[in-house]
Computed example of a mutant assay.
Amino acid sequence: MGLNLLEVIEHQLPSFFNNFDPRAAAANFPSSVQAYLAGQTIALAASPCSTPVLATLLGYVATSTDPVVGGSLLLTYTTGYVAPLIPAASFARALQSLLSFRKGSTQCFYRIMTRGALLLGGRLYTFLDRLFPAATMGM
C-alpha cells in the first residue's frame, strides 16, 4: 500500500460505488430527517463505548432509593457525553470550508509522500525488529 501511495507500483483497487454521491442522495430528504439519520449514525458508532457505562449507571440508579441522586447522576453523564459535540456543532461551518479545501488537494505530493513514507517506514521498522530484536529494544 505504501508503494502504491508513492506511485512506485500502480494498483487499482475495486470500487463498487463509483457513481454514488451520498450528498446528492441525502438532498432528497428534509433537513429534520437528515439530522435524525446523522444522529443515528453517531449513536451506532458510539454505542460500543457508551453502552457498558450507561448500563452500569442505569443499574445503580435503579437500585438507589434517592431519585435526586439518580437524576443528577444521569444528568451528569448526559452532560459529559454531549459536551464534545457542542464545539463540533458550533464549528460546523468552519469544518465545511476545511473539507472543501481538502477536496482540491487530494492528489497533493506532500500527502501522498507522507502516507506512503509512513507506511513504508512502519513496515521497515517491524521487519527490522523481527530480524534484530535486540537492536530495537532500546528505542
Rank of each mutant, 00 (worst) to 15 (best):
L54P: 02
L120R: 00
A62P: 05
S97E: 11
T41A: 10
G121F: 09
F127E: 04
V33F: 09
L128Y: 14
Y77K: 02
G122K: 02
T41W: 11
M1W: 08
D21K: 10
K103P: 01
P84D: 00
S90Y: 12
D129G: 14
P133A: 06
G138S: 13
M139P: 01
S72P: 04
L13I: 06
A27S: 13
T65S: 15
C108Q: 12
A43C: 05
T106K: 13
P48C: 03
L37Y: 08
V69S: 09
L124P: 03
L95F: 11
T63P: 01
S97P: 01
G2D: 00
D129F: 09
Y110S: 07
P87E: 00
A45Q: 05
T63E: 13
S100P: 04
P30A: 02
C108D: 14
L13N: 03
T106A: 09
G71Y: 03
L128Q: 12
K103I: 03
A117D: 00
A83P: 01
L95I: 07
V82T: 02
L99V: 07
A38V: 10
M1T: 11
I112N: 13
P14R: 04
M139W: 15
F109Y: 11
L98H: 04
P84C: 00
T79N: 08
L37V: 07
L98I: 02
G122H: 04
M137H: 12
L124G: 04
D129C: 14
R115Y: 13
S47Q: 14
L6P: 02
C108S: 15
V61C: 09
V82A: 02
A24M: 09
P52A: 01
T65Q: 14
V8F: 09
A83S: 06
S64W: 08
T106M: 12
A46H: 04
L118K: 03
H11R: 12
V61H: 02
P22E: 00
V68C: 05
